[in-house]
Design a protein around this nucleic acid. Sequence first.
DNA 1: CCACGGCATTGACCTTGGTCAAGCGGCCCT
DNA 2: AGGGCCGCTTGACCAAGGTCAATGCCGTGG
Lengths: 234, 234
Amino acid sequence: MNRPPEAARELRRAYLFADMADEHLAALVQGLHDIHLNAGDTLFRHSQPAERFFFLRDGMVKLFRLSPEGDEKIIEIMQPGQTFAEAVMFMGTQGRYPVSAEAVSESRLYAIDQKAFLNLLRESHEASFGLLASLSRRLHMLVNQIESLTLQNATYRLVAYLLEQIPRDVKTSPEVQLTTPKGVIASRLAIQPETLSRILAKLRQRGLIEVHGNHITVRNVQALRDLVHLPPQD
Amino acid sequence: MNRPPEAARELRRAYLFADMADEHLAALVQGLHDIHLNAGDTLFRHSQPAERFFFLRDGMVKLFRLSPEGDEKIIEIMQPGQTFAEAVMFMGTQGRYPVSAEAVSESRLYAIDQKAFLNLLRESHEASFGLLASLSRRLHMLVNQIESLTLQNATYRLVAYLLEQIPRDVKTSPEVQLTTPKGVIASRLAIQPETLSRILAKLRQRGLIEVHGNHITVRNVQALRDLVHLPPQD
DNA sequence: CCACGGCATTGACCTTGGTCAAGCGGCCCT
DNA sequence: AGGGCCGCTTGACCAAGGTCAATGCCGTGG
């Protein structure tokens, strides 16, 4: 598998590879496998033995768990440039995926062999540190998610989600383009699609946002910010 | 600070230190700080700058988040032999604790300086791998917690908790000694103390358990297991 | 020995968000 | 163009668990 140096540049977008020495990254690139998924395709399933982890080149992939009754909770929606399932490597021999993964839209990925990567970790401290940083960030994100699931209500979670979609520097009345179907967002926020709809309707009635399909205009950013930081009110 | 070799043996209980080379561990031991906490004492607070992480020698420490209204959600209850707050080291310069920590009962800990440990990581691959394994385990635990918070009801969570307290090999009618006040367990499971009480009462009425203060006799393990694996029912 | 304070239990009531069902609009596909 | 499907919305109803309040139960300290 002979690859252009573009692949290395592409991988550097991920924190995991950002600081890795060129020669290590080059070696890694030789072992990459291309994966192409159509929307709805499954990448792996919860509790399958894990032998590879992934870098998302483009498209969108959801990581989720299913209840025995078939209800779905999306843990994370992966964006291009991110790696996932790296942690499983360290769950002892025969690590198993703790979640399922499925393409939300057509996606291209690189698969990275765990054994090869473990060997690389033994030689490269930058790689180890990159991985530690990745895991720490994900850990922190999960703790925040637990907090908002347990200490905050559905409106709070949705508003927080909307605010996250607004780039830092925007000062003008911001536009939010929802990048996934609303049902996916609902599952990510652990609410039903009906509830999502109702909350948006209520925010609209209060004049805080305008909804046009999957495009949302935020009319009053400050009011939304207040909703999230001050005592939540109906 | 001159320490007996006991300290090294003590630290090896934690996965993080289990495989570390003797000389590295010995160096680490020289930099330990002793900490003593009475029940209710605070170790650190959410969003404080983090310069150390911790090994719990004995006692019990809760990691939790507070809502603006003062409601508490316990993320994890640390047990003797475990390390915590190691991940913060990698959240870039000026990492901040993502949770608060407070002693549930009188506790003794070792504090480990992050800078010193980072230096050690640069020399010891075992240390890096130990840390990666620790973080992976915690990551997995958090994912499981999110699943049970979002896809399962309060009864399921409590029953799962009770079953976790029963050692693997017990075949006889098992005894569970609750090691913390029920209010603490409730917060860990993200339910109110009243609800915990009611669920225990219902399980009692169904003849599945007997409750004597903080001591619980499980009368029908299999029925509890079924509750957790089959469709949850009232 | 009694009084107090903290934890736990129980009851009555309420709120949030889930469930079920109907309707609507766009999009694709023939 | 028509039909069917899918995603979304809206309404009516429901239930799990939260809230508030009263009471009981110890264990501790004066």
